[in-house]
């Protein structure tokens, strides 16, 4: 079971996921991320504080979003991976693809350009 909540903060979309990201629930996250992407969001934060499990079906969805965002310089940042989930990301090399932060606030800061750089 996976619970997904979505919040918009300016140009940022924050998705918080709670529960298990497995072969059964991966399509739900796929739909939520695709919906945000189709709506034009290029900067997304995936808050994983309450994510308890991930399998290759979940990784496949994250890779799909990465490939979709890359041509437009979009970013998917991940936050607060539990140690056993971080281990899977490290084993598979996914830590090299995504910007990973300790907290949601840190991810938001990293994705928000300083106002003096805005045109």
């Amino acid at each position: 079971m996976l619970e997904i909540t979505r919040e918009n903060q300016g140009a940022l979309v924050i998705l918080s996921i709670a529960g298990q990201l497995d072969a059964t629930t991966a399509p739900e996250l796929d739909a939520a991320l695709m919906s945000a992407s189709d709506a034009g969001s290029r900067y997304m934060v995936l808050n994983c504080t309450r994510l308890t499990y991930v399998s290759s079906a979940g990784l496949r969805i994250l890779l799909k979003v990465y490939k979709q965002l890359k041509p437009t310089n979009g970013v998917l940042a991940l936050t607060a991976l539990q140690p056993h989930i971080r281990e899977i990301f490290e084993l598979t090399g996914f830590t090299n693809l995504f910007s990973i932060h300790m907290t949601q606030e840190a991810a938001i800061r990293a994705l928000t350009p300083p106002t003096n750089l805005l045109p």
């Binding site: 399998s55 290759s56 079906a57 990784l59 496949r60 890779l63 990465y66 490939k67 890359k70 899977i88 084993l91 598979t92 090399g93 996914f94 090299n96 693809l97």
Partner: peptide, 22 residues
């Protein structure tokens, strides 16, 4: 193929590989 960039690798086989590692 660990020498290929992750985004260029076929995703199939990842589950078996992960199982072997874990």
């Amino acid at each position: 193929d660990r020498s290929a960039p992750l985004e260029a690798r076929p995703i199939g086989g990842l589950g078996v590989w992960l199982t072997k590692q874990m």
